[in-house]
Nucleic acid binder design. Structure first.
Lengths: 162, 162
DNA sequence: ATGAGTGCAAATGCTTTGCATCCTG
DNA sequence: CAGGATGCAAAGCATTTGCACTCAT
């Protein structure tokens, strides 16, 4: 699975084309950048970075394209509330559509993907007793804590941690 | 555990007083309404409802009070992205501070609390192998699907479901 | 009395929308 | 060459903030 982002890009392009959506230069630039981005960027993040090499890029186009990808199932969205230090409340976009969960570091704010194992199925079983009749479609899990890098940092601002 | 909301209210009042915060009529009204609310309301929801019996209530006061409760550990927040039908992206507040998860209905948007006590739930939260060194502090789980009521509704708008 | 809390309105930040123009298919 | 896509700016929400005033302690 080397260069997963390259495969992603190709898959997105092929599928959008197949669905009759137009492949404008703007969209290709967005797809190229987004498909390779593991940082769970916000729409504004992408816009800012795209603007560097594509000065006429507009919010509308970024949102519009992300929306198209969303409809086509090539993006997952992630909403974390304001963290410990009020970082960001904007929606984050994730090009990884494999079932997975997220681990958010309370110190640096970094987000790590956690592949979903078969254990998730066990979890949905347990739900039956708690909410009888609820038909589970998806399970999202959010781990909050301290990432390996920040846990290792003994000095500096690690003490932000309550 | 009858009238859990009454206990909650008393606990909140006692604790805020203990922490030296002022118990204004506004705050008491907010606490009274919020502590009994199982619907995971947004700040705006609370504001709108409070306004009926307390016409001078302002956003600032509602947010300010929720913030105080948050700092005192009497509230949990919940951020769902825009659902299937773009309902709401606002932060939701939950007076239930027992460890629990949430089940969101894709049809009616209803949110149900799921106690996190079951052993299966706890067991499935391990992630050591996936993110080595990550120090987990909390785990939030979000189930999406269809609630019992909506699953039973054969006619009407149930077909909204993709 | 005194400073935390309140209320209003203006400001901020993210996202959406209206609409004239452009360009892919 | 037709309709989807773009770009700009203005509009929409949720939330925050500034500041004079009020009231719980």
């Amino acid at each position: 699975m080397r260069a997963a982002h390259k495969e992603r890009f190709d898959r997105m392009v092929a599928d959008l084309r197949h669905k009759g959506l137009k492949l404008t230069p703007q969209r290709l630039a967005i797809l190229r950048m987004f498909s390779a981005d593991e940082s769970h960027p916000t729409a504004q993040d992408l816009y800012a970075r795209l603007r560097v090499t594509f000065p006429t890029m507009s919010f509308a186009t970024v949102y519009n394209t992300l929306d198209a990808l969303l409809g086509a199932g090539h993006v997952a969205t992630l909403n974390l509330g304001p963290g410990p230090r009020g970082e960001a409340r904007a929606t984050r976009f994730d090009p990884n559509t494999e079932p997975h969960h997220h681990a958010v570091c309370d110190v640096c704010g970094g987000i790590t993907d956690i592949p979903a194992t078969t254990r998730a199925l066990v979890a949905s079983d347990a739900l039956h007793s708690a909410a009888p009749g609820f038909e589970v479609r998806t399970v999202e899990r959010l781990y909050r804590g301290v990432c390996a890098e920040c846990a290792g940092t003994k000095g500096s601002e690690t003490r932000l941690l309550s």
